[in-house]
Simulated assay, not measured.
Amino acid sequence: MNLRRTLATLAATTVVAPAVLLTATPASAAAAAAAAPAAVTAPSAADPFASCTSWTQADRVTTELLGFPTRLVAGTWSTFTFRTVNVSASPLKAVGANVDVSAWGAGVPSARLGLTVQWYDRAAKKWRPMPTRVSDFATVSGVLKPGARSDVRMRVMADRRSKAGDGFAFEFARYAGPDGVCGHAGTIHEYDFVVEPAAPKISPARGHLPAVAGGV
């Protein structure tokens, strides 16, 4: 039900709905391993996607989340990497990314848990919040040459007050071509995880220290 909600939202709020294939294991791992890394740039003042004249469903990029956690301890950050690879024969002007993460209390689907997702802007040397709607994207890479990859550090944390729960994440990406033709990554992967409550804080002992027998 939640998966259908996410995909329906994405399709309804983009110019062209991406051709979506859901898999449990990223299919782009082999190609990504051989790709060359690309520098990550800060979001530019001018939206590189504003120059898009048309949208296509051509698979010009692949995406995957590397090291996404299988368990989140409430109140503790867990880091992972958003990897985008240009698998086309032409350079891309920009890449946008988003990660949709949701979690609910164990056995209580109506009890949604609070989660925070951020991405690291290496140019500004600061963490930035991930857009909260799957139709919005953080511009995480500038020009991406054919065969090159963009690796962006990201992190996720469950609210410290969260109880035990279950969740899943999906990665989304879009690209802007210099020819004005833009599109979305055609494959979206699912990443499942569990939420564990934070360890209770131990309060220091109160009161007087016990008397020591045979004092001097």
Rank of each mutant, 00 (worst) to 15 (best):
M1H: 10
M1S: 14
T6D: 12
T9E: 15
L10T: 09
T13S: 12
T14S: 05
V15G: 06
V16N: 00
P18A: 05
A19Q: 07
V20F: 08
L22Q: 07
A24Y: 08
A27V: 10
S28K: 02
A30C: 07
P37R: 09
A38I: 01
A39V: 04
A39R: 03
V40S: 14
A42N: 07
P43E: 13
A45V: 12
D47G: 15
P48G: 08
A50I: 01
Q57H: 09
D59R: 11
D59A: 14
R60Q: 13
R60Y: 14
R60G: 05
V61Y: 04
T62C: 03
T62N: 12
T62M: 08
L65D: 03
P69G: 07
R71W: 01
L72M: 10
L72K: 12
V73I: 08
A74Q: 11
A74T: 07
G75K: 12
T76P: 04
T76M: 14
S78A: 15
S78P: 13
T79K: 14
T81M: 06
N86E: 01
V87Q: 11
V87P: 03
S88R: 00
P91V: 01
P91K: 03
P91L: 03
P91N: 06
G96L: 01
A97S: 15
N98W: 00
A103N: 02
W104Y: 15
G105K: 11
V108R: 15
V108M: 14
P109A: 11
A111D: 12
R112Q: 15
L113R: 08
G114A: 15
G114H: 05
W119V: 06
R122E: 06
K126I: 04
P129I: 00
M130A: 15
R133A: 14
A138V: 12
S141F: 00
K145P: 02
K145F: 00
G147T: 00
A148P: 00
R149N: 12
R149L: 13
R149P: 07
R155W: 08
V156P: 12
D159Q: 10
R161L: 11
K163G: 15
A164V: 04
G165I: 02
G165L: 09
G167L: 04
F172A: 09
A173E: 13
Y175D: 05
A176I: 00
G183N: 06
A185D: 14
T187H: 11
I188K: 00
I188W: 04
F193H: 03
F193G: 03
F193D: 05
V194E: 09
V194R: 15
V194F: 10
A198C: 11
A199D: 11
A199E: 14
A199R: 13
K201I: 09
P204N: 02
A205D: 04
G207Y: 02
L209T: 03
L209G: 08
P210N: 02
V212A: 10
